[in-house]
Nucleic acid binder design. Structure first.
Lengths: 190, 190
DNA sequence: CGTCTATTTGAATGTACTCAAAAGCGGTGG
DNA sequence: CCACCGCTTTTGAGTACATTCAAATAGACG
């Protein structure tokens, strides 16, 4: 399924065969069972991962042991602890598979090499970061201005596919509410 | 003070004289009094603004008229309603000066032209978007895992200069709490 | 089938909100 | 120059939304 990843990239930049094969050579592919940790907090965050199939989530565990889901990544999404990946800091988050998943990983060294060798990728990653930024900013905006119920409905409308692949408990931890409270909310009409 | 903006860019990419002068020619400079609207919701978001001096903030106003501060921008920061700027959508946010400010503005057309003419700027904006993304993601993480008081202390530690330039009411609306409640919190040791 | 986790339900609690009012502070005009 | 006006900040009482804890029910997986 390397097709998926190159198709993802071709949405934004045009690559020739040589560039494609260089890119492929810098990636490693893994198929992982459900509930496998891809990254553990305090470890070195070595990889940026593209989800070819399955689903992953990143989450933060605070001192009291409470989990906050930072993001979900289903097919065709990229995921990592971006701050720690880019700045070579020990990871703040955990990342785990929610179901059996196939991912392609780009190490930090290969990321640097790729940008050096094919500057066109600057554009690709600029657009990726731009989309990630505007998505997070919208999330902050909704967290500040909507009620828990409205946020839940907005999530379901925006990410119907994710809703099918993750548990309500995980959605609650993404929305910043308890599973008990989520369960009292009116179900949105999809 | 165009020095400031070129210095900001030189932190990440090296420009020759020709590129610098092209860049300068694509910018327009404005000095605005306190409480001036730079962008109004529903308008076309035409500009990305670099703050040379002063302070701006972007905020969202919901149906009930409640304001949520999305971001502050003091000297050397860039600000816009990024989603609407990039996607040519009517603005969701307002942006206003908090004090007398001097800003440099890059229109969307000039942004496209700049990236076309000097691809090195892809790298600059990749890094800008990257920083913005990781900053917002950390904010989401803190919103989900910290109490209001901890978020306030974290804000004061992270942005001491912003604290000097904005009101407590504005900080409250950034943190997602009421000014009354902020006022009951223990003052952090700076 | 049995075990483990997710989901739901309910009661008691707490955190943060609304509303009201007083105090503080800064800017402006007489 | 200073008195007034408007906005910010603080304080307090009452309230609402969301939490914790406990327990029952439902679902998924080996």
């Amino acid at each position: 399924m390397e097709d998926g990843i190159l198709k993802n990239i071709s949405k934004h930049i045009l690559l020739n065969d040589e560039e494609r094969s260089l890119f492929n050579s810098l990636l490693s592919c893994k198929t992982l069972p459900k509930k496998t940790l891809v990254l553990q907090a305090d470890q070195d965050c070595r990889y940026l991962s593209y989800v070819s199939s399955g689903a992953l989530r990143s989450y933060y565990v605070d001192r009291e042991g409470r989990e906050s889901t930072i993001m979900f990544a289903i097919a065709d999404w990229w995921i990592t602890d971006m701050y720690c990946y880019l700045n070579r800091k020990p990871a703040m988050m955990h990342i785990e598979t929610i179901e059996k998943s196939t991912i392609f990983q780009l190490s930090r060294a290969n990321f640097d090499q790729l940008l050096e060798a094919v500057p066109k990728f600057e554009k690709f990653f600029r657009i990726m970061m731009q989309n990630a930024y505007t998505r997070e900013q919208l999330r902050v905006m909704e967290n500040l201005s909507l009620t828990a119920e409205e946020r839940y409905h907005s999530f379901v409308m925006k990410y119907p596919q994710i809703v099918r692949q993750v548990t309500k408990k995980q959605i609650a931890s993404y929305l910043g509410i308890t599973p008990e409270f989520l369960s009292t909310l009116k179900k949105p009409e999809i």
